[in-house]
């Protein structure tokens, strides 16, 4: 498993975690993508966005849906917390393309890996100016990994 320097945690409730994995599985083997919005680090809304590229190795959010999602966040006074996409054949670690095209330094980049179909993995990263730092994903009730670093 590829590792990066740790930089804190990212909290996910179980329902959102399940929704991310379900979304990733829904269009396998193609990559899916979407946004998570919330307040004070707690996810309040899951906004799936179509992958306009519909590719197994690339995603690009549909531009109209992307704006609609941002307007929805504005209207609800929610912040962008995370940008997620799936890796259907590789691990949950940012690819060189993910790093190159990370234009949202304020968001946590979540990657849902379906490399091992029975063991989906979700990991989170900050990607700022080409530097990757891990934000350990904590799912509610996941006491074993709940210690903040």
């Amino acid at each position: 498993m590829t590792r990066a320097q740790g930089n804190g945690r990212f909290d996910l409730d179980q329902a959102t975690y399940d929704a991310l994995v379900a979304h990733a599985r829904s269009d396998f083997p193609y990559e899916v993508c979407g946004l998570l919005a919330g307040k004070d680090g707690r996810v309040a809304r899951h906004l799936p966005v179509s992958n306009a590229a519909r590719s197994m190795t690339y995603y690009e959010m549909d531009s109209r849906e992307l704006l609609k999602a941002f307007n929805e966040m504005d209207d609800a006074d929610l912040d962008l917390l995370a940008i997620y996409h799936s890796h259907t054949h590789t691990e949950a670690f940012p690819s060189p393309t993910d790093v190159e095209l990370a234009f949202y330094p304020e968001a946590v980049y979540l990657i849902v890996s379906l490399q091992y179909a029975d063991e989906p993995a979700v990991r989170g990263f900050e990607i700022v100016d080409g530097h990757v730092a891990e934000r350990a994903v904590h799912v509610d009730g996941d006491g074993a990994t709940a210690a903040a670093r």
Binding site: V49, L67, F70, F103
Partner: peptide, 10 residues
């Protein structure tokens, strides 16, 4: 007018 960087990756 709204400006939004694309959200894309691999």
């Amino acid at each position: 007018v709204s400006i939004l960087p694309a959200v894309a990756g691999g």
